[in-house]
Amino acid sequence: MLSFLSQGRRGSGWGMALPALLLLLAFFVIPVAGLLSRSVTEPQPGLQNYETLLGSFTYIRIFLNTFLVSGVVTLITALIAFPVAWALAIMSPRIASVLFAVILLSMWTNLLARTYAWMVLLQQTGLVNKLLMGLGLTSQPLQLTNNLIGVTIGMVYIMLPFMILPLYGVIRKIDPAILQAAALCGATKGQALRRVLLPLAAPGIASGALMVFVMSLGYFVTPSLLGGTSNMMVAELIVQQVQSLVNWGMGGAAAFILLVVTLALYALQLRLFDAEAR
């Protein structure tokens, strides 16, 4: 999904892109630069904000939490999205368009509403726990909110469309006859998946994973509602620093570390997959 940004007609259309570029400059580049400068100037000039963040176990744990949750969310999302995208690609276009409408509708529903819905579903007396106990899978209610389990469940649900769409894009372009050819060559279903389907879908998996991972890194609403205070994520830390403590320097430094990680991952993805496509 991200890769289309780098495709298209290069070198033309600057004039038409100008308003958007100006907007980006005014509301993204300048504020980010401001934040960055505040991270090395407040409360006094120097790198002490970064030293604090990367030097204390409390803060490092927040970063590790964030990367762990984002990684797990990305992995689970990919595992769920792949069969869905595959099914969408091979089913009749009419049924597929209905399913797409369902996926998009869930995407367009208010994020807060969806997260509160998960809070209700996942609480001690919620539907999920009742179901698990009713089926005899657990004897007492599981703690599914106020921790990283709740955050992961809620985020996987929210991120699914961002994985399904790019995966659907690549899978739809794979000629089904290629898989028939693999079968006649003697490949079992597993071998065809491993040796043919996954490598061909890899660019879609990569752009979906990048999208989900990066969005997860900076997610605020779901972690703050479904997560506990003891398992903070970076976005919560930034909000806390800026809103409650009015510590722009620390908030800026945390935000900048996330930005660097994001850009590094994006560069890696471009290097791995766009070079191949060229």
Binding site: D175, Q180, A181, A183, L184, G186, R195, V196
Partner: peptide, 20 residues
């Protein structure tokens, strides 16, 4: 016998080489 065990060779109408 499923396709992958039939040991039959096939050349298709479209190009079905594995592009990767």
């Amino acid at each position: 016998t499923p396709s992958h065990k039939r040991q039959i060779g096939m050349v298709f109408q479209r190009y079905t080489l594995f592009p990767h």
